[in-house]
Amino acid sequence: MGLFTRFTDIINANLNSMLDKAEQPEKMIRLIIQEMEETLVEVRATAAKNIAEQKTLARKIGAVEKSITHWHGKAEVALEKGRDDLAKAALTQKHKYQAEQEQLHEENNQLTEFLTAVQDDAQRLQEKLNEAKRRQDALLLRQASAEVRLKVREKAAVYNIDEAIGKFERYQQKIDRIEAEVEAFDMTENKDLSAQISALEQDDNIELELAQMKKQAANG
Rank of each mutant, 00 (worst) to 15 (best):
M1F: 08
G2F: 03
L3N: 03
T5L: 09
R6K: 09
R6P: 00
I10D: 03
I10S: 08
I10V: 06
L15H: 09
S17F: 08
S17K: 14
M18F: 04
L19G: 04
A22V: 08
A22D: 03
E23F: 07
E23T: 13
K27H: 05
I29S: 01
I29T: 02
I33C: 02
M36R: 00
E38H: 06
T39P: 00
L40S: 08
V41M: 09
V41D: 09
I51R: 03
A52E: 12
A52F: 04
Q54K: 10
T56E: 15
L57K: 01
L57M: 07
A58L: 08
I61S: 01
I61K: 08
G62Q: 08
E65R: 11
K66Q: 14
T69A: 15
W71H: 15
H72V: 02
A75S: 13
A75N: 02
V77N: 02
L79R: 10
E80G: 11
K81I: 02
L86I: 05
L86A: 10
K88D: 07
A90S: 08
T92K: 13
K94F: 01
H95E: 15
H95Q: 13
Q98T: 11
A99D: 11
Q103C: 06
E107R: 10
E107T: 02
E107F: 00
N108E: 12
N108T: 07
N109P: 00
T112D: 01
L115A: 00
L115Q: 03
L115W: 01
V118C: 05
V118Y: 06
R124I: 05
L125G: 03
Q126V: 06
E127W: 03
N130G: 06
E131F: 04
E131Y: 05
A132D: 02
K133L: 10
R135F: 10
D137A: 14
L141D: 12
A144D: 07
S145C: 01
S145Y: 05
S145M: 04
A146R: 12
A146Q: 11
A146H: 05
R149F: 08
E154A: 11
E154I: 09
E154N: 08
V158Q: 15
N160W: 03
N160R: 14
D162R: 12
E163L: 14
E163S: 13
I165F: 07
K167T: 10
K167F: 06
F168E: 15
F168H: 07
R170G: 08
Y171F: 04
Q172R: 14
K174T: 11
I175L: 14
R177L: 13
I178A: 15
I178W: 11
E179L: 11
E181I: 04
E183V: 06
F185D: 14
F185H: 11
M187G: 04
E189F: 07
N190W: 06
N190F: 03
D192E: 13
A195F: 07
I197N: 12
S198L: 07
A199I: 02
A199L: 06
L200T: 04
L200V: 09
E201W: 02
E201P: 01
E201N: 12
N205T: 15
I206R: 08
I206Q: 07
I206P: 00
E207V: 15
E207Y: 09
E209Q: 13
E209R: 13
E209V: 06
K214G: 00
Q216G: 10
A218Q: 14
